[in-house]
Nucleic acid binder design. Structure first.
Lengths: 212, 212
DNA sequence: ACCTGAACACCGTTCAAGT
DNA sequence: ACCTGAACACCGTTCAAGT
């Protein structure tokens, strides 16, 4: 009845749990349950929980598509950034480990190398490309990290609730203004800042960063 | 002998533990031990672990100094960003909760309101200031979040170790180039990207973002 | 060869009991 | 009023045992 366990099935099951209930819901017992197996059986396929999580993250990173080489570097990186953002939207729990750079595996390296290559081709020095990678990557992973927590916990806190209700607007007038007048469109915001980063580094590259 | 417990002492002890061993080392039993008290005694002063962590984060946020109002907005925000970054460097465990926007308390709101005020004064529309806040805040909190994990775990992974050893440089040539030729100066990187963000939004404000 | 049961040292948290 | 002990339902992980 029960299929034989494989590492692939273990990681799949863990991803299903995380997609449903978040990364904190991952426990060896819970993943085992998902597979109709005792927690201890998982240790045949992953050496410990950390390796399981790393494998889950790698699986997500494997879905990041490398920037195209047949269009301009900014267009290519813009598109690959938006694509990675979309992948993360489907697996928001992966944002935290990805943003924190805990364990960088081969899939991640493949992606990073391709991004660096585009940046270099865009005329950025090795030094500037290194900075640009961190700005780009930090923005892509970091944006989803912030959003993930904004949603999944309704743990807004008493103050934010009061703000939303219109109280405290005297105490924090600019926040009140922002909450009532600004459009809160995470996707538009993501793209605007992404462009700002790419254009900013383009400008720096063209000015020529002599020190490097 | 033992001083009476107060919420302040509980939070102080927890911060000491986190400064020493990271956020994951925080447990009610461990914090109790630090205070020569059973874990259960802490529940007199915090309603649960989540509230304890929120209080720890608020204490760090209390040390963020608001941007000055007697200099230009970009200089002011540049300085306050660097100051916040320095505070986080002393308490890197706070970066994760701050970057994720889990629980925003009064100290955080005070800081955010002041940043928004400077941005508005710089001529940014409500909409643009809202985006700029996220870019600015995400960069400040996010940079330290990445660095925190880069260091505290020597869990670099087999691949990164191999890269450092010069192997795999054929497979990931751009990463190899970056590792050998680029200067890895986190502070300089932080400031360059901070400037890029501030200058970018300044430019957008001056061009006039008609939609908003 | 593959999975399980029992066990160990941890968690957060509740609640009745001690002083 | 303030702290503790015992307990409950969880963790990750080890190891000997079962099939």
């Amino acid at each position: 009845m029960r299929e034989r366990l494989t590492k692939e099935r273990v990681v799949d099951a863990a991803i299903a749990v995380a997609d449903h209930d978040g990364l904190d819901a991952i426990s060896m017992r819970r993943v085992g349950e998902q597979l109709d197996v005792q927690a201890m059986a998982l240790y045949r396929h992953v050496s410990n929980k950390e390796e399981l999580v790393n494998s889950m993250v790698e699986r997500v990173a494997a879905r990041f598509s490398v920037p195209r080489t047949d269009v301009g570097w900014k267009d290519a990186l813009r598109a690959s950034g938006i694509a990675a953002y979309a992948v993360l939207k489907a697996h928001p729990w992966a944002s935290a480990p990805l943003a924190s750079r805990a364990h960088v595996g081969p899939e991640r390296l493949r992606y990073i190398d391709a991004v660096l290559d585009r940046l270099r081709e865009g005329g950025l020095s090795v030094q500037l490309a290194h900075f640009a990678l961190h700005a780009y990557d930090g923005h892509v992973m970091g944006s989803m990290y912030r959003q993930a927590r904004d949603e999944d916990e309704a743990d807004a806190g008493a103050e934010v609730a009061a703000l939303r209700a219109g109280e405290l607007s005297a105490q924090y007038p600019r926040i009140a203004e922002s909450m009532t007048e600004a459009v809160h469109d995470d996707d538009a915001e993501f793209e605007l800042i992404l462009d700002l980063i790419l254009d900013g580094f383009d400008r720096l590259a063209r000015v020529g960063l002599s020190r490097s």
